[in-house]
Simulated scan of single mutants.
Amino acid sequence: MLFFAVAACGQPSDDVGFGGQPPAPPPAPVQPKPVDQRTPVPPQQLSQGAPKVWTQDGGSVVVATGSEGGCSKVHAELVEQNAQQVKIRLVDEIPEPSGICTMDLRYPPLAVQLDAPLEQRQVIVEQIDVKVPKK
């Protein structure tokens, strides 16, 4: 009898428990298009000190210029979007311990997908550094 109980535990189940749905997979990263296929966001729509920001795909994608260097790697996160503003966080991941790194600086374009076109909403860009374990 114990054999059947143990064997049943190893069977795959389509049930996710409590009648819920499995979590949705994260959205695929959006790739920035070449500069000539983007539209600059007017300065009056940008937070003070924001890097260069564009829209693409009819305003439904916002592209901001990140900053990384040496061993660090930057990515963009859409933090908030509502009727008045879109908030984007540029996260520069710095490996810890750093080890030997080059002294170069890179300014990659980073894109985030919006639920609706940007139109006249304000774009707030914040930049943070985060220490991550070295791989």
Rank of each mutant, 00 (worst) to 15 (best):
E93A: 13
V41H: 06
I88W: 05
L90V: 08
P34T: 05
G70P: 04
F18S: 13
E77A: 06
S60K: 13
V30W: 00
Q31A: 11
G59Y: 10
L90G: 03
D14S: 13
T55E: 05
V53W: 09
P26D: 11
A83W: 06
I88A: 06
L46D: 02
G69T: 00
V61Y: 02
T65R: 09
E80L: 15
I88L: 09
V35L: 13
P22R: 15
Q45K: 09
V91C: 01
G69N: 00
V35H: 12
T55I: 06
V35C: 05
G17I: 09
E80S: 15
V41T: 08
D14R: 14
K52F: 06
K87C: 07
A24L: 15
V41N: 10
A24K: 15
E93P: 01
Q37T: 03
Q56N: 08
V53H: 02
A83I: 05
P40S: 03
A83F: 12
A24C: 13
T65C: 11
A64P: 00
P40D: 06
A76F: 04
P22N: 12
Q21D: 15
Q81R: 11
V62R: 00
Q11H: 02
V62C: 04
W54G: 07
G58V: 03
D57H: 10
V79M: 15
G70N: 05
G66I: 04
H75D: 15
S13D: 11
D92M: 08
L90R: 07
S13N: 12
G58P: 04
E93R: 09
Q56M: 10
A50F: 03
G20M: 15
G69E: 01
G20F: 15
V30N: 03
E77K: 13
K73G: 01
A76Y: 12
A50R: 01
K33H: 05
G49P: 11
K33F: 02
R89L: 08
G69I: 00
F18Y: 12
D92W: 00
V53I: 06
E68Q: 15
R38P: 04
E68N: 03
G70Q: 07
Q11F: 00
P25H: 06
Q21V: 08
G58Y: 09
G59N: 11
Q84P: 02
R89C: 01
T39D: 12
P32F: 10
P51E: 13
Q37Y: 02
G20C: 13
L78G: 04
V62D: 00
S60W: 00
S67F: 08
V74A: 14
V41G: 11
C71S: 07
V16C: 11
P51S: 07
K33G: 04
R38S: 06
Q21Y: 12
G10M: 04
C71Y: 05
Q37F: 01
P29K: 09
E93D: 13
S72H: 06
G70F: 00
P42G: 09
R89M: 08
P25Y: 10
S67R: 12
G17F: 07
A28G: 14
G19A: 14
L46H: 05
C71R: 06
G70D: 07
P51L: 08
V61W: 00
T55A: 08
V91Q: 04
